Simulated assay, not measured.
Amino acid sequence: MIVIDGQKCDLEFAQFENLDEIFSTVAEKGYLNDRVVTDVFVNDEPFSEVYPHQSEDITVGDVRSVEIKTMATADMAIEITRELYKVVTLMGEGGRTVADLFRQADDAEALETYQDLLDVTRNFLGMIGVLRNEYTLKDHEEYEAIGEGMSSLFTEMTEVLENEDWILLADLLEYEFLPLVDKWKKVIAQLREDIRQVR
């Protein structure tokens, strides 16, 4: 039996050879349009591939039931904005920590934490960009201004880093990075509202 979001679907195991064919057909028949798969259960056990294309190696003879749980893409996007709000909070805490470490002359720890902060910030900006392109926010002046401010600040911080001026880097983090991070909270709220209007 194949169940999608609590509803038995009209596909039968007999028409498939392996689990991968089931997943492919479910997608091709449109059962997952505008939806994101959140959970898969095979024989009432949670399933995720241990290695790529593992589902091709599981024959339908070994399968009694497949249950697929999904969420609307817009609902998933709203969940992501909630997570992004948490990430912004972490970015703020990280910026303060790095600035403090540089001021305490703990350069090695500060540089390591600074690299982590940059990675988190890049990932955050990438995700904001994806959501923005998918769910508008294209014309929000605030987004543009904060994005440009962040870009020029990163350029300046890179130059300061090359000059190993740790105190100036701490100042940039505290007096320029942290205020920009706080402004992202409003952008995330705007993005969440845009997504709600789309769905």
Results as ranks from 00 to 15, higher is better:
I2G: 02
Q7D: 04
L11Y: 01
L11W: 01
A14K: 11
Q15L: 01
F16I: 06
I22Y: 10
S24C: 07
G30W: 04
D34T: 07
D34L: 03
D34Q: 13
V36R: 12
T38F: 04
T38I: 14
D39H: 15
D39V: 06
V40Y: 06
V40I: 15
F41S: 05
N43P: 00
N43G: 03
E45W: 02
P46N: 04
F47Y: 14
S48F: 06
E49T: 02
H53S: 10
Q54T: 05
S55F: 10
E56V: 13
T59L: 14
T59N: 09
E67H: 07
E67S: 11
T70K: 03
T70R: 02
A74M: 01
D75S: 11
M76G: 04
E79D: 11
E79W: 07
I80N: 02
I80T: 11
R82S: 13
R82E: 14
E83L: 15
L84M: 14
T89V: 12
E93N: 13
A99I: 06
L101Q: 12
F102M: 09
F102R: 08
F102L: 09
R103C: 08
A105H: 15
D106C: 08
A108G: 01
A110S: 02
A110Q: 02
L111I: 08
L111G: 01
D119C: 03
D119P: 00
V120N: 04
T121A: 13
R122E: 11
R122A: 11
N123H: 09
N123A: 09
N123L: 10
G129Q: 00
V130S: 03
V130R: 04
N133I: 00
N133F: 00
E134L: 06
T136Q: 02
L137E: 00
K138V: 06
K138R: 02
H140C: 04
E141A: 02
E144C: 02
E148I: 04
G149H: 03
G149I: 01
S151P: 00
S151A: 11
F154I: 06
T155N: 10
E156Q: 08
E156C: 00
T158V: 00
T158F: 00
E159H: 09
V160L: 03
L161Y: 08
L161N: 05
E162G: 05
D165F: 08
W166Y: 15
L168E: 12
L168K: 15
L169A: 12
D171A: 11
L173F: 06
E174C: 05
E174N: 14
E174P: 08
E176D: 15
L178E: 15
L178Y: 10
L180K: 11
V181P: 10
K186L: 15
V187H: 07
A189C: 08
A189Y: 12
Q190C: 14
L191P: 08
V198D: 01
